[in-house]
Lab assay of single mutants.
Amino acid sequence: MSGNGNAAATAEENSPKMRVIRVGTRKSQLARIQTDSVVATLKASYPGLQFEIIAMSTTGDKILDTALSKIGEKSLFTKELEHALEKNEVDLVVHSLKDLPTVLPPGFTIGAICKRENPHDAVVFHPKFVGKTLETLPEKSVVGTSSLRRAAQLQRKFPHLEFRSIRGNLNTRLRKLDEQQEFSAIILATAGLQRMGWHNRVGQILHPEECMYAVGQGALGVEVRAKDQDILDLVGVLHDPETLLRCIAERAFLRHLEGGCSVPVAVHTAMKDGQLYLTGGVWSLDGSDSIQETMQATIHVPAQHEDGPEDDPQLVGITARNIPRGPQLAAQNLGISLANLLLSKGAKNILDVARQLNDAH
């Protein structure tokens, strides 16, 4: 009898209710805020589980004197976190989706994509230029951005401005803007500013005609071990179906173009009346040469937790077992079709030249 009692006690200790789920994140304040929001949602869904947040620095956090596009290494903000995932030191990792490459290392998958916040870019102005827009900034004003995508589009749109690289986390960039006289304004992701509670610093939100956004911008991705079915089931509740389908289309477009950090590629997606609209573009580094096109596809946005595919093969690095396969494939095909259209119009040449120029500098 006593033996059975011990077995029952052991089973209770090993039951999922007692389990601590370890969540990996970057150390920056924004990353911690984003991770806290994901953990809060998981806690609400699984009140019996405990969650421990483990923060670590990544290569991208450490190399702050070089433009991201020049470092010449993929997975700048993800490699150390993936290493911890691989060694079973954490069970899942919360990322900004735009930091996750469209091809993940073997053994990993994006197990959830959370509801997207505003994906557009924002302009934050130096205190002396508050009330201005990019259009009304004085001639030769210097605007800071760490992104080739932003610089290429904005140089084309605002030729009277000069664009220079600015690195560091959000706090560091804002301090550089406010305390030094080098920059009249800087460009940042609206979602990051909003998550930090800095709505009052948003001086201008850039519309798609001015600057399309990065693939996955404004959404959070939760990376897990691809074979860890328990954790895949656990994080599945975080999937937002519309965000998922938009981001599958965007990531398929980028992957098929073979774009990345070192080339200016941008997108804009919208879901309306059962249609998914995808606009994508590529630019030369100075913005003088560009190709942009829009395509659409009829896609039914499923309700969360309709029964999805059981075999769960990944699409552009994403596993969404609780979302039907048909809409996911339709979104992926839309991204591939748009990429093929741009490639047929000469996108590869623009991107190759951009890559060579970026590598040469």
Rank of each mutant, 00 (worst) to 15 (best):
I299H: 09
A44K: 13
H305G: 14
S75G: 12
K27L: 10
M212C: 01
N88T: 13
N118S: 14
L342G: 06
R251G: 01
D311A: 15
N88L: 12
Q194D: 10
D178W: 06
M196H: 12
S96N: 01
T279Y: 12
K62R: 08
P241L: 01
A266I: 04
T279P: 03
L100H: 01
C247H: 01
K43Q: 11
R22M: 05
T172L: 11
A40F: 07
L342S: 08
V143W: 03
S284G: 11
G287D: 06
K128V: 07
Q296K: 12
E210S: 05
S141Q: 11
L100D: 01
T269N: 06
F253W: 04
A226E: 15
S45Y: 13
E73A: 09
E258M: 03
R355M: 15
C247T: 06
G203S: 15
V202L: 11
A297M: 01
L177D: 04
H83L: 14
L92K: 03
I110V: 10
E89I: 13
E73V: 09
H160R: 14
Y213D: 01
T136G: 10
G197S: 12
G60S: 01
R325K: 08
I231R: 04
L257V: 14
M271W: 06
L177Q: 05
Q181L: 09
E293G: 14
V282P: 01
L170E: 07
R167A: 10
L220V: 11
D61T: 01
A354R: 03
L334G: 15
L134F: 07
V123R: 01
C261H: 01
T102D: 05
K27H: 10
H256D: 03
Q314P: 11
G259L: 12
V224R: 03
L234E: 01
L177H: 01
K27G: 09
T294D: 01
V94W: 01
T145V: 10
S69V: 10
C211T: 05
Q153T: 05
I231S: 10
A152H: 14
K348I: 15
N88P: 07
I54N: 09
L338C: 08
E258A: 04
I291Q: 13
R19K: 13
K227T: 07
T78E: 01
L64G: 14
L104P: 08
A249W: 01
F51G: 08
D91F: 01
E117H: 11
E258Y: 13
T269Y: 01
D61Q: 01
K348T: 05
T136M: 14
V215A: 09
V143T: 06
I205Q: 15
R175Q: 13
I187L: 09
G192W: 01
S96M: 05
R173K: 04
Q332S: 15
L81N: 01
K70Q: 07
K227N: 06
A112E: 01
N349H: 05
V123E: 01
Y46D: 10
D307A: 01
V265Q: 01
